[in-house]
Design a protein around this nucleic acid. Structure first.
Lengths: 338, 338
DNA sequence: CTGAAAGCGCTTACAG
DNA sequence: CTGAAAGCGCTTACAG
């Protein structure tokens, strides 16, 4: 922002303290030996003049901005908001700042965001892109040094970036087992978009768990939601139409979809959980707002955000300790599937 | 991000095109006369080398970053998310980018965010700070050139910054009039934190409208919510305790609070809207998710965000056309107060 | 322990 | 219409 008053620069500090910019820079960066006395003088000058180092100038000189980008496909989705929150805290703790970028699930916008972040010259990027096709993700990851991908698809990029994934199949298994152990016999799955790995994986988890328990999933019942939000869940559930009466257990892709299904049940005169038990996934706030409350899989969203930042920081520091981390989910039993 | 391969610089482009950096800069900025031929050569060189101008270097040279900051007190509050969305679109359209900053309603964090944005050297800042005290806001506004405040408190800063405000009192009047005209006689107000102007103003609007209609608000019934979200609304409604049976109309500070009240009603065996009619404010998504759907005041959230950016751009351009803009709300009638 | 000087990648008067 | 040069505010070898 063009300042009304001239900016206080390092040269001003140097002059006031009677030293050179080199010295000022050194005390600022705690680099090299400096006599206690000189340091004192410089610190006083900084204090007195109200000097604040220009991140831009520093960025130009060092090629480091201490900025991190976080790309999410939607900002009104609490799942990503929580990840952002965790990431932000972790970043601040390490003197980094987070730039939150929302793509609205638009792939072109995804690329534009990468370009934007490259423009700003962030030191690293966390990408949450569950639906982005591998062939779109790969070039982005190739172009940048430090990237951590949360729930990404494909494998081509994996040696280039860090990865964090939720243990989707195992989560769904917990949901299915719970429904079966509470007496449900005719289960189906209300899925997310099948172009997302998290989605297909959850479906597979559902199918496998069912088979492992000696049941056969009815493929005709399998329904997906577009988009995987409340409206999508509502519409898709209604599509189940006549067969719905036979179903007594519904495993949903996420809490939003589950809430939509519950809403549809309300209108269709189907009682939850009496007639049908419903489970969600992620445990967002909505899970406890909806009536009946959602039985769901808790995902440690903030932890994922913090972990992503830590992995990024490792990479920036030249280490690649955590290549891939799997995050387990935990079943929380509430009213919708007691 | 320290690049593995050397960055393509303006000098490279100049060399490849057989001109000087000055010329390259000129075609990039469309400044000064350039022969079509030269321009062509430069453009080709840029294309060929895949050159992308460094925003950092440019920022250092011009003191302009084409970056805007947007400070919000909470990122899980849909009201602010929508403002952010509107702001982002408006910014992109003008080749600016938005940096979204969340303070979580923490005033110290508010100041830190300002410092951070100053650090990044954004060209302007939009602040949503409904609860920030005037004496905290003033120094921040004084320190920056280009600021637009959304729903700010106090007046001291008003000649220094642009302002956008919702017409809260008039909104509440609509709600009260609707309740009265549909036969409700014993109204009360479930308020927000009384340290926010929007909150006191809504309360005054409520009281005035009631009096204008010849009713006397019962001050004993007046209750505030801390915080003004679902839980707060739920708790506060319960505090109304015994007197609740006498109340047949409830005007709420916002949709979140209203949803909390509805939830409490459910548990207390009070029927909405039969026993009590409830109105919200803002018309967030939740308004149509809750059962019964919320009658509420629609606030054009995205428009507010876009307007804020436009006002900021005006200021950056040296104009101060819109000093203060008042945004009207509109009553949407749904199930909770038919 | 401290300084002089070059460099980061741009822009912008000033000349021609 | 184009260029040489200084400057934006830092950092960092290189000397001493």
């Amino acid at each position: 922002m063009p300042r009304p008053t001239k900016r206080v620069t390092m040269a001003d500090v140097a002059e006031y303290a009677g030293v050179t910019k080199t010295t000022v820079s050194r005390v600022l960066n705690n680099k090299g030996e400096i006599s206690a006395e000189t340091r004192e003088k410089v610190l006083k000058a900084i204090e007195h003049l109200g000097y604040r180092r220009s991140r831009i100038a520093r960025g130009l000189a060092t090629d480091q901005t201490f900025l991190l980008g976080l790309i999410v496909p939607g900002i009104s989705n609490e799942f990503f908001i929580e990840i952002a929150r965790g990431a932000e805290d972790a970043a601040w703790e390490n003197d980094y700042k987070i730039l939150l970028c929302n793509t609205e699930g638009d792939w072109d916008r995804e690329e534009r965001m990468f370009l934007f972040l490259e423009d700003i010259q962030v030191d690293g990027i966390v990408v949450c892109a569950p639906r982005l096709p591998e062939e779109r993700l790969l070039p982005l990851v190739e172009q940048f040094q430090n990237v951590v991908v949360v729930n990404g698809q494909g494998i081509a990029w994996r040696e280039l970036a860090g990865a964090i994934e939720t243990a989707d199949a195992s989560g769904m298994r917990q949901a299915v087992n719970h429904l079966i152990s509470t007496g449900r016999r005719h289960l189906t799955y209300l899925g997310g978009p099948m172009d997302a790995r998290v989605s297909t994986e959850r479906y597979l988890g559902f199918v496998n768990a069912l088979q492992a328990a000696g049941h056969t999933p009815n493929p005709d019942w399998h329904t997906t939601c577009h988009p995987a939000n409340l409206e999508g869940g509502y519409e898709s559930f209604k599509k189940l139409g006549r067969v719905i009466a036979e179903i007594d257990g519904l495993v949903c892709f996420n809490d939003l979809v589950a809430a939509g299904a519950i809403r549809a049940c309300g209108e269709m005169g189907i009682r939850v959980p009496d007639d049908i038990a419903i489970t969600g996934c992620d445990d967002i706030q909505l899970a406890t707002l909806v009536r009946p409350n959602l039985t769901t899989l808790q995902t440690p969203k903030q932890d994922i955000g913090a972990l992503a930042v830590h992995m990024l920081l490792e990479r920036i520091g030249g280490q690649h300790i955590h290549e891939t981390v799997i995050i387990e989910q935990r079943l929380i039993i509430r009213e919708s599937a007691p």
